[in-house]
Design a protein around this nucleic acid. Structure first.
Lengths: 349, 349
DNA sequence: GTGAAAGCGCTAACAG
DNA sequence: CTGTTAGCGCTTTCAC
């Protein structure tokens, strides 16, 4: 908090505070030698302008806030990598906060941050549409991985992702695919379900929807048995963490993966050792998404009233076949023993 | 940045700004009904005090900075979880920054943050002692996982950790153990090497030190072959990420783990699926360390000139036997074919 | 090209 | 109990 003030620099340099200020913010307004002397002295003294005080008057702090539900989720670390890098290029610094998946905490944090940053990137916000709208007026907000009307947002093309995934599975001969859903409140989950239905129809595969499950490794462990019981030869999980759980549980049951069953996930999380797993996944460009979110925020700050909709970016996703997703070993077993409780869709149009 | 100001609240409530201010910071100084009216109105308007402006006068912002080299490292996400939780209890908010392992960036970030936070927790700082000392006067600093003279710090008891680990391995009959070292500049690595030497002597096992290696999954892949060539029946890696790489490479070579070789790591990173791996590890209490760092910082802020040394905490570490670390299959092969290039230590005193 | 003065949003005396 | 005054560190008119 404490530190060297502009006044000390000014006094020692034998100039006024205004001149020191100008040397930093408008160098061309200061005579070269004065400027150099001031800047050199500032460096020696370890002076850095107080961004908070500056913000008080300019309305710009040079800080950008990023809020995530859970820092331990590799998805968000990847997003943050991108956001950080882009922010640094723009000479902004990123302040990060973790809401612990709590919408109440999320709101408090945004409020507390609001005055200290120029704008906030909300990643996979858990807040209600109502809360979001209440917050909007107090601070420029960019959503990541969530759409809310036509607010600025960075989104992934989930529908295209599952289409590619199902095309891949279909080409290999899979005719019955289970989808293990994530949280009902998740925008991504809704999009992926929608995409799965479209793609299943198109590929003429039976789709079995299960869930919701917790979007975690444990959730995957729990989802594996119901998934196997559907008689599906391929399982698509809501995210990589769940897919990992499924793989593990199936392995424990002695099910051959890939072989009897193929498992696919979502995210493409960069975890050590993932490369060795028989896991095909829809890879989301998380780092790029982080960059894009900062881009959007900077644009919005430059032009506070842009055309609505101009500030939404939908990012392309890739299919990452980490190991051969196998052709089903045998024709899928005829009608599964325990018909799933979830609804069944698909079949030729 | 923008938002409702204290003045608007004051005007609408028919009181002065001071009263509003007091309602927030010293409620007992305001008559109950006035206070309630003001607070209610503030809530309705969505007013939150501007911490930056407040900090300008009080010298306290209510923000705490945490700086890490790499957010993608699960070690730091875990630390951050703890720090966040503790900070929230103290009604502080954590601003986080990622230095991308660059000491220059680290210094810049600390400087930029300094004026906007009350203190900073530097995790595994990559800065030189010189840089660190230059920064000290400008802002209260707490180090985590690094010792620098008697500056406030949270440290792990690495020496005790390796002692426990070697005792475990020794009891199982391992008589030759390889240590795969991390970065030379790492304080942890130096401590672990020191501890390994002490413990090896005490347990009467041969210690083979290798490295330095990159403290990553890839580093582990590269370290595996040299480690196997030493004829050691147990391998201790600098961290879990490396251990994972070793496991993978050994599996690819068809080496039985545990069996021919046992692998141990450091950290106890909470990655999905880790529990299923045959990996014994020294588990560092990372969440607790995050909490402790905030504690230290709060203490230091309350008492700016504490007894030197009172503000260092050394945290106990646990041995986490994730799966049975096996007894060596056979008496270790007599003199290894390729004597290691690194120095060999150990043997009975 | 540079300084003096005013004010950003807030809190801390000091009066009343 | 509450309002008035001053000023935190900085930038920005407006003079010179």
């Amino acid at each position: 908090m404490s530190g060297v003030t502009i006044h000390e620099v000014a006094t020692r340099a034998g100039v006024s505070a205004s001149t020191v200020s100008r040397a930093f913010t408008n160098p061309q307004l200061v005579r070269a030698d004065t400027r150099d002397r001031v800047l050199q002295l500032a460096r020696d003294l370890g002076y850095t302008p107080n961004r908070a005080a500056r913000g008080l008057i300019t309305g710009r702090t040079g800080n950008i806030g990023v809020v995530v539900p859970d820092l331990a989720n590799p998805f968000f670390s990847a997003v943050l990598k991108g956001a950080n890098a882009r922010a640094r290029e723009a000479d902004q610094i990123v302040f990060l906060a973790d809401t612990d998946e709590d919408p109440g905490v999320e709101e408090d944090l945004v409020r507390a941050m609001a005055k200290q940053v120029d704008g906030i990137v909300l990643c996979s916000s858990r807040m209600s549409g109502h809360q979001l709208h209440e917050l909007m007026p107090s601070i420029p907000l960019v959503l990541l991985n969530r759409r809310e009307d036509d607010r600025p947002a960075v989104l992934f093309d989930n529908v295209a992702g599952v289409r590619r995934l199902l095309a891949h599975l279909g080409a290999l001969g899979h005719r019955r695919v289970a989808y293990l859903g994530g949280p009902r409140t998740s925008w991504s989950d809704r999009e992926r379900r929608r995409g799965m239905r479209l793609a299943a129809r198109r590929e003429a595969v039976d789709l079995v929807e299960l869930g919701p499950f917790e979007p975690t490794y444990e959730g995957g462990l729990r989802a594996a048995d119901p998934a196997a019981a559907t008689g599906a030869t391929a399982v698509v999980a809501f995210n990589d963490l769940m897919a990992l759980g499924v793989l593990n549980r199936l392995a424990a049951r002695g099910v051959a993966v890939p072989g009897e069953v193929s498992v696919a996930g979502f995210d493409g999380i960069p975890t050590a050792g993932m490369g060795a797993l028989p896991l095909t996944t829809v890879a989301l460009p998380m780092v790029q998404a982080g960059r894009a979110a900062i881009d959007l925020l900077l644009e919005r700050l430059a032009d506070p009233d842009p055309d609505a909709g101009r500030l939404q970016r939908v990012l392309d996703v890739d299919l990452l076949v980490r190991s051969t997703t196998a052709t089903p070993l045998a024709p899928p077993p005829t009608p599964p023993p325990n018909p799933p409780t979830a609804d069944v869709q698909g079949g030729r149009p």
